[in-house]
Design a protein around this nucleic acid. Structure first.
Lengths: 189, 189
DNA sequence: GTCTATAAGCAGATAGAC
DNA sequence: GTCTATCTGCTTATAGAC
């Protein structure tokens, strides 16, 4: 383990608490107790509770934005692009499952500019996803079901991985990727 | 519209607010404002904020428990059982999408007995789902992928329907059921 | 059934000592 | 970098008038 800055330690501890109870239900006193210090001491490292939340969420949202842009601009076919999106979500989940809880459930507690910035990134991510599916449908690379249903179904599974994967330590990440791709693309029946 | 009791009106208004900001971030003053009265007046109809939450969540959890028990005890094959589970989730979502937000995101704020009761129902629901998939796999009715991945993937899509379906008013509920069954059981590729 | 007034406690955050 | 002490405002909930 490489040493982390005190600020990053606080953010990591906060992400765990936010995952358990949600941003609004976690107090600075809860967070301080988890760090083994008093609440006032936290403010020597961070500016506000809000700064912790925005650091967690915006960083992750930017990772997804960068990853999706690479996939969209590649010249692979539709199925390969969908596989790469699944890969992207699994990779981010393995690296920061706790933070993804905040991104999924507490983004609405972002303030001002960060809220707008986040919503813009999320909208663009979904639009990119939808375009990939639409083009695949036009080219006959995927089945002619309702586009919104396919996008929603896949995305909601990938977005909820953070809740489930940490419990499944016995599943190797390569098997996870392979079976997740199979289940989402080819179904279970 | 049949007339609703004032208590039920309050619970419905609360479910909408809980969906938007989460249980902890919604104050009794917020709820009172939504109802057009003062916060103190709410207590003439309900005992506590906690009572509102448990009424929303426990009622829905019991609906899922009853529905799942019927499916488990039927003599249909695995694919039909999975279709019936999809049906169950779509039906409950159409009837009370707002309440499902609390069930999914705010169950951890239940207290004492209700928390234990909820967790027991959720565990049994997941166990029943897993058993259906396992038996289908043994009988060769579904594909030999990792059981946990299939259960998680399907269940996370169904659990997140509440976020997405209210936005998709142009999709007929029969088309939703048909394509949802196709996408989850047969995949998109 | 709704109101005003208010209790009792907890929230995020700051000041200043060590 | 952490502490104690404290401010200010907001939280759920109650009491009692109308």
């Amino acid at each position: 383990m490489r040493p982390e800055s005190r600020k990053q330690e606080i953010i990591n501890a906060a992400a765990i608490l936010f995952k358990e109870k949600g941003y609004s239900a976690v107090t600075m006193r809860d967070l301080a107790k988890a760090m083994g210090i008093k609440a006032a001491s936290l403010y020597n490292h961070i500016q506000s509770k809000q700064e912790i939340l925005s650091t967690i969420i915006i960083g992750l949202a930017e990772e997804f934005t960068v990853g999706m842009n690479k996939i969209v601009n590649s010249d692979e076919n539709t199925i390969q692009k969908l596989e790469n999106i699944i890969d992207l979500h699994i990779d981010v989940t393995l690296r920061n499952a706790d933070g993804l809880a905040s991104l999924n459930n507490d983004w609405m507690h972002l303030e001002e500019d960060n809220l707008q910035y986040f919503e813009k990134m999320r909208q663009e991510y979904e639009d990119n996803f939808r375009d990939i599916v639409k083009k695949g449908l036009e080219k006959g690379e995927i089945k002619p079901y309702n586009v919104e249903i396919m996008v929603f179904s896949t995305l909601s599974t990938l977005r909820t991985l953070y809740l489930w994967y940490p419990e499944q330590k016995e599943i190797d990440s390569d098997i996870l990727k392979r079976d997740m791709i199979s289940v989402l693309l080819k179904g279970v029946a």
